[in-house]
Amino acid sequence: MTGTDTAADAPQPRRGRADKAAAVVHAACAVFGRDGFARAGIDAIAKEAGVSTRTIYNHFPGGKEELFRTVIQWSSWRVRDAQLAQLEHYLDPQRPPRPADLERDLLALARAWIGLTTDFPDHFAMVRQIYAEIGHLPVEVLEAWQAAGPRAVGARTTAAVAVLGEHGLLELSEGPEQAAAHLLALTVSEVARRSYWGAVPLSAEENDRLLASGVRAFLRAYGVTATR
């Protein structure tokens, strides 16, 4: 290299097929989250990824629908894994909390899950777009999203709630699935709804107020003292 050479002038390594596919998926996640499914264009995704449109069609011959389905699955898997790791940390079935600690641990779990909206902003931007366009999205895409993320997290949350019932920490006369749905609705779903899935973030104080109120309401309904 001579003294006049620059990094921009130096030959750049060629990206392999896997690298290009990963670049397309990351770029598509950002573009779909920004523009939605209907308005997002393959040209915009190609520009964001630094590849040609032909490269995108080589990897995703089904075009935009196949790409969107792939991206929402990939993104949902990442968020699902983070949610399940936190669920196991705060509600470990091998070490159920003491009765006095249940409210604390449920609140900590809800806080951790809400924190994921800032850890995975592109994913939750896509979720906002899904709700905005839900009547215009292919059923196969919606099913792929639900199977990859929300349904799996719901099933594991139901299992965790069932364990709490087995240890006498919750009264589950209506079944653990209904209780798990209420827990999510009263806490993370409430904050997500009010913040438009992270588009208009609430203050930390407002988040805590909503989550604490939701956990208390859940325990009033399902806590063992509620039936005594």
Rank of each mutant, 00 (worst) to 15 (best):
F37D: 01
L137T: 11
Y90N: 05
F37S: 05
P138A: 04
E140H: 10
T53Q: 15
E66D: 10
A132P: 02
F32H: 05
L102T: 02
R104S: 14
A28I: 04
E140F: 01
L116F: 03
H26C: 08
G154W: 01
F60C: 05
P121A: 05
G36V: 09
D43V: 14
G62W: 00
P99D: 13
A28F: 10
R104Y: 08
Q86A: 15
T157A: 13
A144V: 10
D35H: 13
M126K: 03
I56N: 01
D35Q: 10
A125W: 07
F120I: 06
R111G: 04
L67Y: 09
A82R: 13
M126V: 15
A85T: 15
F32A: 06
R151V: 08
A144E: 13
L106E: 09
P61K: 08
A46D: 00
G149N: 07
T53F: 03
E103S: 15
E65L: 07
I45D: 08
T55W: 03
Y90I: 00
R156K: 14
F68S: 06
V139Y: 12
A147T: 12
R54G: 15
H89Y: 13
E140G: 13
V31M: 08
I72A: 00
V141H: 02
R111V: 04
R128Y: 09
L107P: 00
P61Q: 02
Q129W: 00
V24E: 04
I134R: 12
T157N: 12
Y90W: 15
I134F: 10
P97V: 11
A40L: 05
A132V: 09
V141A: 15
A30Q: 11
D81I: 03
A108E: 14
P97H: 11
R128Q: 15
Q146K: 09
I130R: 12
W145V: 11
R39M: 10
H136Q: 14
R34W: 02
L84W: 01
E143I: 13
H89V: 05
T55P: 06
A108N: 11
I72T: 13
A132Q: 12
A155V: 03
L84S: 02
L84I: 15
E133W: 04
R80D: 00
R156F: 01
T157E: 04
L87N: 06
V25T: 15
A108R: 15
P61C: 00
P150V: 11
D92M: 01
V141G: 10
R34C: 09
T118D: 14
E143S: 12
K47N: 09
G36L: 11
S75Y: 00
D92C: 01
K47W: 00
T53V: 09
A46M: 08
A46S: 08
A38C: 02
S52H: 11
D119P: 00
P99S: 15
A152D: 09
L91G: 06
A46Q: 07
D43K: 14
A40E: 03
R39L: 14
R111H: 14
L102A: 05
L84Y: 04
P138T: 01
V141F: 02
Y90S: 08
E140L: 06
A38F: 08
L142W: 04
Y90F: 15
Q73T: 12
V153T: 14
A132L: 13
F32R: 04
L87I: 02
I130N: 03
A148M: 06
R128V: 05
I72Y: 02
A23R: 14
A110D: 00
R104W: 07
A108T: 08
A147R: 13
M126W: 04
L106G: 09
